[in-house]
């Protein structure tokens, strides 16, 4: 129990710290690398929640593919330090921070005050945390959510065609001359 708690607080510290670094670093490459750190942390949090397969997919898709693309594009641009990384205007900036903070406070209030979320267990039952649920996941995905799955397939096809079209259009990386 205590080791679980220590693990959670460590991971929470890592994810929040690196998430903060994403926003605060003026060099976008450091932001991207911090975001990778956040995603690895979130993946570890998925493991603590017993979602092993999702944790692996998070590593492969987010950390291994999406963020590699981001870092690659940033390295090609070679922006180094940004002179104007943040928005102009002290007052508007402060307003934005304050409103985001109020939003956070609102969510926290809802979470802590409305503690009668009757449909959830407060404390996890330790029995089912080590069960391999990937088989069940597949069954549910291809039975109950088959329409969403097929729709995603179509979406990915559209995205692939669209991205190629973007790259080949005027001004793209593979523009026709």
């Amino acid at each position: 129990m205590i080791s679980d708690a220590l693990l959670f607080w460590f991971l929470a510290f890592v994810t929040v710290g690196s998430g903060l670094a994403v926003v605060l670093f003026t060099n976008p490459i450091y932001s991207a690398l911090s975001l990778v750190m956040t995603m690895v942390g979130v993946s570890a949090l998925f493991v603590t929640l017993g979602a092993y397969f999702i944790a692996g997919v998070q590593l492969i898709v987010y950390a291994g593919a999406v963020m590699v693309l981001f870092v690659m594009v940033l390295m090609l641009f070679d922006l180094k330090q940004e002179l104007m990384a943040f928005s102009r205007g002290q007052i508007t900036g402060a307003l934005k921070v304050i409103s985001a903070g109020l939003f956070l406070g609102l969510i926290f209030g809802i979470i802590t005050k409305r503690s009668n979320l009757s449909f959830v267990d407060k404390i996890p039952s330790p029995a089912d945390i080590n069960i391999d649920n990937s088989k069940e996941l597949g069954t549910v995905l291809f039975a109950r959510h088959i329409f969403g799955f097929e729709a995603l397939g179509v979406l990915l096809l559209v995205i692939a065609v669209g991205t190629v079209a973007l790259a080949r259009s005027k001004g793209g990386t593979h523009a026709k001359h």
Binding site: I29, L33, V36, V40, S43, Y52, F53, A55, G56, V57, Q58, L59, I60, A63, G64, A65, M67, V68, V71, M72, M75, D132, S134
Partner: peptide, 25 residues
């Protein structure tokens, strides 16, 4: 031992790309 050993190995070894990019850039 992990129940999702393959997924874990693929995920972790895909992080190797960052090393290369960090070194290169």
């Amino acid at each position: 031992e992990m129940n999702v050993g393959i997924v874990f190995i693929l995920g972790v070894s895909s992080l190797a790309a960052y090393t290369i990019m960090m070194a290169g850039w």
